[in-house]
């Protein structure tokens, strides 16, 4: 390639403040970002998929993760290895937004219960709860891109 033909990097326009707010709303209430953008179909499909996954996960006895140290098996420090290893799944769970926050406040799906863990569907439930959060991150990014005009 001749020097004069080198491609120039296109300047990236800063996203408007409204896009950040819509992204925040999309994370907090799954589907709400697309609702605010009046993308009814996407809101129903993507928000519906996230909510469905979350409630199916809970119904299957899934377990969500937080940073509460298990004092029975660890030193009780938040920096204990057994606690730190819960950070990645917690980040995934946190993607569910208000659903995660409400369950955390009401202690639903957070308790380490051996009876619940013995259920056949326990691991399925965990997986559904994890993907609900991860899918909502994708939904949030999509809503942000649409609001910022980077995507139709």
């Amino acid at each position: 390639m001749v020097k004069s033909e080198r491609l120039q990097a296109e300047p990236v326009e800063a996203a408007p403040g409204m896009a950040w707010l819509i992204g925040l709303a999309a994370w907090f209430i799954p589907g709400s970002g697309h609702l605010l953008l009046k993308r009814w179909g996407r809101a129903a499909l993507m928000g519906g998929a996230v909510w469905l996954s979350f409630f199916v996960g809970l119904a299957m006895g899934g377990h969500m993760f937080d940073l509460t140290p298990d004092t029975a098996t660890t030193s009780g420090s938040i920096f204990d290895w057994a606690t730190m290893i819960q950070v990645p799944p917690m980040i995934a769970n946190l993607g569910s937004g208000i659903a995660y926050v409400v369950c955390w406040m009401m202690d639903i799906g957070f308790r380490d219960d051996p009876v619940q863990a013995a259920r056949t569907t326990y691991e399925y439930g965990n997986t559904f709860l994890l993907i609900a959060g991860l899918m909502n991150y994708l939904t949030m990014l999509d809503a942000f891109d649409v609001a910022a005009g980077r995507k139709s």
């Binding site: 996407r42 499909l45 993507m46 519906g48 998929a49 996230v50 469905l52 996954s53 199916v56 299957m60 569907t121 399925y124 997986t127 559904f128 993907i131 899918m135 994708l138 939904t139 990014l141 999509d142 139709s152």
Partner: peptide, 19 residues
């Protein structure tokens, strides 16, 4: 259960991709 998982993931992947 696997079908349900595949369906919800496919919905989101399909919705965010392509033109």
């Amino acid at each position: 259960v696997m079908m349900l998982f595949a369906a919800v993931a496919a919905i989101v992947f399909g919705a965010i991709s392509k033109d």
